[in-house]
Amino acid sequence: MILTLPEIILLSILAFCLLVQLYFVLFVHLKLANATVEAIPSTARKPLSLIVCARNEIKNLREYLSTLMTQNYPEYEVVVVNDRSWDGTEEFLEEMEKVYPNLKVVKVLDNDKFLAGKKFAVTMGIKAAKYEWLVFTDADCTPGSDQWLMDMQQPEDDNTEIVLGYSPYIKKRGLLNVLIRFETFFTAVNYLSFALKGMPYMGVGRNMAYKKSLFFRSKGFAAHMHIPSGDDDLFVNANAKRHNTEIRIHPDSHVWSEPNRTWGGYLRQKKRHFGAGKMYKSKHKFILSLQIIFQFLFYGFFVAGMFLSREAQYIAGGILLLSIMIRSLIYPKLLKRLNYSDLRWWFPILDILLFLFLTLNGFLAMFGRKKVNWK
């Protein structure tokens, strides 16, 4: 077998990209695959406040609010922030206040003097909360069980100020739903694994918790109030540290969420996330960029290798096959652990489809209108 110098260089770069890829697989994501899932505590330590922001969410509140109000937790309040809704949310919440004594409703009124948005609504909810430990979710979410709050309560170690949970999307029909769930899976694997590794960098507002005192000590969202998204990931990115952050992945503490039903809605959602990611700490942006760039290079150089000699094609194909085989030993296990077992048989195909879709979406996110509302 005789390879030309350009072929040797290309295949060497492809092999190096594989090594970088395997670093994240074997030294980061494998931590989550091997992590022990702790049992949910049987007793509550302290009371807590559950905060939900709602803007024109009457349909979801009717369906899911009761699951939040009937958690198996002895002392907690549910603070629902009604952010300028006009769809009947206000009237519905007024009725629910009569049914549930631990429901507190906070109203955000229209006012041209301030820039309203989800971060303002979250801040209003935090100010209204009477307990130190705050748990967050969204109006279109439902806990996996009535043990959710028991698992998301303040840990025994008082030095823990942030708890990161997991929130999968509900299974629906269609390719869009498959891609949404698969992308959510990889996002969760990444932030949960890095948290276990001692470098927490984000969380999702559908299922997370932190101390009220931490919020005010760090001046809340003041540093990124001009960004429409980031009430969850940017706050965690700024305040989470190795010794003050824990994760929760017990199946009973998963919080299920309604996925986008349209491609346009999903693209707008990813556009908001793309804008928030620009404000991550430099070290986090570097690591995450490294992941994306080397994955792009891996597939790019593999495709380029298919235009070389037959010998080079065999080597490039072998490198790709090795990558798929190693990752297929780990990610199907994680898919099962994170409640996406139905996707594990499609892993190699979905991995490529998701990469292509997110590459296109990242390009599109650089263009178009700049203003993106949360609802």
Score class of each variant (00 low, 15 high):
Gly264Thr: 06
Arg173Gln: 10
Phe235Ser: 05
Thr4Ile: 04
Leu93Thr: 01
Ala54Lys: 02
Phe27Asp: 03
Met366Gln: 15
Phe120Asn: 12
Leu32Lys: 08
Asn244Glu: 11
Met202Lys: 14
Asp146Phe: 12
Ala276Gly: 02
Tyr64Gln: 10
Tyr201Pro: 03
Leu149Glu: 10
Asp151Ile: 13
Asn339Ser: 14
Lys285Phe: 03
Arg310Tyr: 09
Arg55Val: 07
Ala128Asp: 02
Ala121Leu: 11
Leu297Met: 13
Ile170Asp: 01
Leu68Lys: 11
Gly275Gln: 11
Phe16His: 08
Pro74Phe: 07
Leu134Trp: 09
Leu196Asp: 04
Ala139Arg: 04
Ala39Glu: 14
Val255Leu: 14
Leu175Lys: 08
Thr187Trp: 15
Tyr210Ser: 01
Leu356Val: 09
Ser328Glu: 05
Pro332Ala: 08
Cys17Ala: 05
Glu258Phe: 12
Phe294Tyr: 14
Met279Ile: 14
Leu364Ser: 10
Val52Ile: 15
Ile58His: 06
Phe136Lys: 02
Phe301Glu: 01
Glu97Tyr: 09
Ser12Ala: 15
Ile287Cys: 11
Lys278Asn: 02
Ala312Tyr: 06
Gly198Cys: 10
Ser145Ala: 01
Lys172Tyr: 06
His284Cys: 12
Phe215Asp: 01
Gly165Met: 09
Ile349Ala: 10
Ile8Cys: 11
Leu115Thr: 10
Arg45Gln: 06
Trp263Thr: 03
Gly305Arg: 09
Lys104Ala: 02
Lys127Ala: 09
Val178Trp: 08
Asn373Leu: 10
Tyr210Thr: 02
Val372Ile: 09
His226Ala: 05
Lys212Tyr: 08
Ser49Arg: 03
Leu329Glu: 04
Gly230Asp: 00
Asp233Ile: 13
Val37Trp: 11
Asp146Gly: 02
Lys113Asp: 04
Ala128Arg: 09
Lys219Gln: 11
Leu93Phe: 06
Lys119Leu: 03
Tyr23Asp: 05
Ser229Met: 11
Asn102Trp: 12
Ala54Ile: 04
Ser193Thr: 10
Lys98Glu: 07
Glu95Thr: 12
Phe363Cys: 10
Met325Arg: 14
Leu149Asn: 08
Phe185Met: 11
Lys107Trp: 05
Leu5Trp: 07
Ser145Val: 13
Asn239Ser: 09
Leu18Asp: 02
Leu5Phe: 08
Arg181Lys: 13
Leu290Tyr: 06
Leu14Ala: 02
Phe302Pro: 03
Asn190His: 15
Ser253Glu: 02
Gly277Thr: 13
Pro168Gln: 01
Lys171Ile: 01
Tyr210Gly: 00
Ala44Gln: 08
Tyr314Cys: 11
Glu7Ala: 06
Gly275Thr: 08
Asn260Gly: 12
Thr36Trp: 12
Ala222Tyr: 12
Gln21Lys: 12
Ser193His: 12
Lys31Gln: 08
Ala316Glu: 05
Glu90Lys: 15
Val37Ile: 14
